[in-house]
Write a protein that binds this DNA or RNA. Sequence first.
DNA 1: TAGATTGTTAATCGATTAACAATC
DNA 2: TAGATTGTTAATCGATTAACAATC
Lengths: 216, 216
Amino acid sequence: MKRHTKIDKLPTVRRLPGYLSILQKLSATGEMFVSSSKLAEKMGIIPILVRKDIELIQVSGTPRIGYPIKLLIERIENYLGWGASLDAVLIGAGQLGSSILANRELNTLGLRIAAGFDNDSRKMKTSVHGVPIYDSARLEELLKTMHIGLAILCVPAVYAQNVTDILVASGVKGIWNFTSARLSVPEDVITQKEDLTPGYAVLSAKLTRLQTSACR
Amino acid sequence: MKRHTKIDKLPTVRRLPGYLSILQKLSATGEMFVSSSKLAEKMGIIPILVRKDIELIQVSGTPRIGYPIKLLIERIENYLGWGASLDAVLIGAGQLGSSILANRELNTLGLRIAAGFDNDSRKMKTSVHGVPIYDSARLEELLKTMHIGLAILCVPAVYAQNVTDILVASGVKGIWNFTSARLSVPEDVITQKEDLTPGYAVLSAKLTRLQTSACR
DNA sequence: TAGATTGTTAATCGATTAACAATC
DNA sequence: TAGATTGTTAATCGATTAACAATC
């Protein structure tokens, strides 16, 4: 009875956007086919890993020729549900929220932010990067009129759970969490947490090791 | 002769900031010891994984009592080189750059941004979140006067390699790359790339699976 | 045909999980 | 002493890598 929203090839799925962006560029230059070794080189990985990844999206290639670019693009977009664009709302139009509104790359990946919400009166009724910003107090009311698949959460951590509860009650099934709060949600709601600290930790650890090893 | 800056317990290192933040909160409430099961619960993982992670930072605990919080904090900070704070510069004070300047969390983790650079004349000579912003043209000149361990790269992707070359020539050994460009650097320079698209792909894939599985 | 590239099957590697003895 | 928790050793699991046959 447990609803399993575990994805079973997580590392592969995480690489899909990288492939997609390379493929779109190749396609724009008129290329029709690409080999696993060429994709591998541009991704900074090895060819066999590319072939394994392509297995997931069920595209077959031709020996000596490679894989059909158009089909790879289509299957990746289909796998990720990026064929039709996804309507999203953004909650918290501060510095971080604004930088996401400004991010063109996410747009090209099928993300369309229909509205923003903020409780700073200076931001309300204005439009940031073409997206209208409404009063957070109207969140529940306006969500009812929109068909929203995803909420992007950029509020201060202390409000995160509170806003999440409203989103969940309004039927939002996906929450992209940019706050430091861990959210509790029903099992049929999917959350994805973004956090800079793991990457910063890896960078710091490497830098520390580099310095000490250079000292000998 | 190869200089290896590979970190061998990457998943563990990525979890260290999570532990650190929990431990600092516990320490602030006056707690002296914590068990692996308590840490595990707050991290959303299982206790044995916590004990394995603690192995890396070489803290030993006491049966029935747990691990000494102060020592855990000290060893994590030491492992990551976060004891002394790290001087950084930020290149590109646009929306994204400003949101990093505004991020208090990174400050508490030992990151101190000494200066920002931008070539938008409106931003120069002003101060964003207490950090002075200089003309990008003065990057090379000013880097010579500073002792910089890390550069945070938030410029448009097309300028990324160009700026990187300047940074490398100025002796910067760590680059935190928020652009979509893949950077080429000498082997003694460490880069860490941040990218929202893998997380977005995972979220999208799960949402797509959820919807289709709910339809039956 | 020759040779490059795919695709399959097996091996390796590392991370997570399990089992349980040691310890306070 | 009893029982909770650590720490060690082994098992499992999944991702990556290797080897090589199949194919165009």
